[in-house]
Simulated scan of single mutants.
Amino acid sequence: MTESPNPAVIDADTLTGDMHPIRRAVLSLGSNLGDRMFNLQGAVDALADTPEVWVTGVSAVYETEPVDAPEGSENFLNAVITLDTTLSARTLLERALAVEAAYGRERGETNAPRTLDVDLIVVGDRHADDEHLKLPHPRAAERAFVLVPWHDLEPDAEIPGYGTVAELLEKTGRDGVERRDDLALEVQ
C-alpha cells in the first residue's frame, strides 16, 4: 500500500516546481591582509550560517607564499572547506562574494593582496565557463595552496576533467606551503 501525501504539509520544492539537489562543494579560503585568521574564521562562520549550506569539513591552516602576486606581497593563510548545499552554483558564488565584501575585500588588480578570498573550486559536477562563473576553478589543479589542504580533507577527491587531487598534488609539489599546527579553524 502506498502512503498518500498529507495535503496540509507544503513542500517548498513543489511550490516552484524546482528540485534542489544537494551538491558537494569545495571552497578555497585565503587572506594576506589584516588579521588573517580572523578573516578566515569569519568566512567559515558566515558560510556555515548560510541557509541551505552545511559545512562538512575544514582543513588545517597553511601559510603559503603568494602566487603571481605583486612584489612585496605578504604570505597568505589558506584553508579549504567542504560543504553540502542546495544552493545553485551562481547563488553560492554570490554568497562567497558577499562574504569577501563583508571582510573588506577590494577588487582591482589581479592577484593583489586581499583581506579575504573565497573561491569556488567545484560545485558537484557542475561545469561553467562564463564571465563570472568558471567551474571547476580553472587554476585550482595547479595551485598547491588549494591542493594540499583539500588533500588533507579528501585524499581521494577529484577535480572533474583534471584528475585526482593526489595526482595533481604530485605534479605541483608542496613548495611554499607550510602547515600551521598552531592555528585552527572551527565550525561553530
Rank of each mutant, 00 (worst) to 15 (best):
Pro51Gly: 07
Pro51Arg: 10
Pro51Ile: 03
Pro51Glu: 09
Glu52Ala: 14
Glu52His: 15
Val53Lys: 06
Val53Asp: 00
Trp54Asn: 14
Trp54Arg: 13
Val55Pro: 05
Val55Asp: 03
Thr56Ala: 01
Thr56Glu: 00
Gly57Asp: 11
Gly57Phe: 08
Val58Met: 05
Val58Tyr: 05
Val58Ser: 11
Val58Gly: 09
Val58Ile: 13
Ser59Pro: 04
Ser59Ile: 11
Ser59Glu: 07
Ala60Pro: 04
Val61Cys: 07
Val61Glu: 05
Val61Asp: 00
Tyr62Gln: 01
Tyr62Ala: 07
Glu63Trp: 03
Glu63Ala: 12
Thr64Asp: 01
Thr64Lys: 00
Thr64Ile: 03
Thr64Gly: 02
Thr64Gln: 00
Thr64His: 00
Glu65Gly: 07
Glu65Ala: 15
Pro66Cys: 13
Pro66His: 09
Val67Thr: 12
Val67Tyr: 13
Val67Leu: 14
Val67Arg: 11
Asp68Lys: 09
Asp68Trp: 09
Ala69Arg: 04
Ala69Ile: 12
Pro70Met: 08
Pro70Glu: 02
Glu71Met: 08
Gly72Asn: 05
Ser73Gln: 05
Ser73Lys: 03
Ser73Ala: 15
Ser73Thr: 11
Glu74Leu: 07
Asn75Trp: 12
Asn75Ile: 02
Asn75Lys: 11
Phe76Gln: 08
Phe76Lys: 11
Leu77Gly: 02
Leu77Asn: 07
Leu77Phe: 14
Leu77Ile: 02
Asn78Ser: 00
Asn78Met: 02
Asn78Asp: 01
Ala79His: 01
Ala79Asp: 00
Ala79Lys: 01
Ala79Thr: 03
Ala79Leu: 01
Ala79Gln: 04
Val80Pro: 00
Val80Trp: 06
Ile81Ser: 01
Ile81Val: 12
Ile81Glu: 05
Thr82Leu: 13
Thr82Trp: 04
Thr82Met: 14
Thr82His: 10
Leu83Ala: 12
Thr85His: 11
Thr85Pro: 09
Thr86Ala: 15
Leu87Asn: 04
Leu87His: 02
Leu87Thr: 09
Ala89Asp: 10
Ala89Met: 06
Thr91Ile: 10
Thr91Ala: 15
Thr91Gln: 11
Leu92Glu: 06
Leu93Val: 07
Leu93Arg: 01
Leu93Lys: 06
Glu94Arg: 14
Arg95Ile: 15
Arg95Glu: 15
Ala96Lys: 00
Ala96Glu: 03
Ala96Ser: 15
Ala96Tyr: 01
Ala96Arg: 05
Leu97Gln: 15
Leu97Phe: 08
Leu97Pro: 00
Ala98Met: 03
Val99Leu: 09
Val99Ser: 11
Val99Cys: 10
Glu100Arg: 01
Glu100Trp: 04
Ala101Lys: 08
Ala101Ser: 12
Tyr103Gln: 12
Tyr103Thr: 08
Tyr103Met: 12
Tyr103Arg: 12
Tyr103Leu: 03
Gly104Thr: 09
Gly104Gln: 10
Gly104Tyr: 09
Gly104Lys: 11
Arg105Leu: 05
Arg105Thr: 03
Arg105Ala: 01
Arg105Val: 00
Arg105Tyr: 02
Glu106Gln: 14
Arg107His: 05
Gly108Val: 10
Gly108Ile: 08
Gly108Lys: 08
Gly108Arg: 11
Gly108Gln: 13
Glu109Thr: 13
Glu109Leu: 13
Asn111Ala: 01
Asn111Thr: 03
Ala112Glu: 08
Ala112Ile: 04
Ala112Leu: 06
Ala112Val: 10
Pro113Leu: 12
Pro113Thr: 10
Arg114Asp: 02
Arg114Leu: 06
Thr115Tyr: 11
Thr115Ile: 08
Leu116Lys: 07
Leu116Thr: 12
Asp117Val: 07
